[in-house]
Amino acid sequence: MASRRKITLDRRKVVEKILKDRGDILLVTGLGAPTWDAAAVGDHPNNFYLWGGMGGAVLTGLGLALAQPKRRVLVITGDGEMLMGVGGLATVAVQKPSNLAICIMDNQRYGETGMQETHTEHGVDLAAMAAGAGFQKYSTVYNNRELAEAIPVLYSEQGPVFVDVKVTDAPQPMTLPPRDGPMLKHRFRENLLGHV
């Protein structure tokens, strides 16, 4: 069970710090608040937002990471979304994509449906599940010092890496990126591949 430490980090500030110097990373965000968080930092052609397909963020990241082995792929998703596709941690760990980083904005809530408690509120430890799957690099972040250590891990440690960031459940203004699926797909591919 996860230890009961005080949760103080603001998710918008966390995602802003993570993406501030994003370089050429390719970003996949899970549905709901992680997509709004990334949009609040700034829309970007290297962002692919999932507006549905709950549970699919990590495996979308895996397919992308295998296709683009020279590019760093970062998946930012929520605890509820990760829990729905938690078997994907086993699939990723077996493939060992060295360029894939997974970062969870873990507010211990299902944010889009009324802030109901997720399993992590009751002690389910996502970093321990990643470790159990076989991730060699995993951590749970509670404060800015730990976040400062985790960000270089997300960008440059040999993957796959897994960072669970505990964030407060304080409400945030909704910042909506584009949501037309073909547009997001075409923009991402054109920027990456030079064609749609």
């Binding site: 495996l59 397919g63 992308l64 295998l66 596709g85 078997g87 699939t91």
Partner: peptide
């Protein structure tokens, strides 16, 4: 060919989306 064993088939649907985004 990269062969990926899944824990459930829906993972593969998402993986195929990522592969296409990445040009494969």
């Amino acid at each position: 060919i990269r062969s990926v064993v899944l824990t459930t088939e829906e993972e593969g649907v998402a993986q195929m989306a990522g592969a296409w985004l990445g040009g494969q």
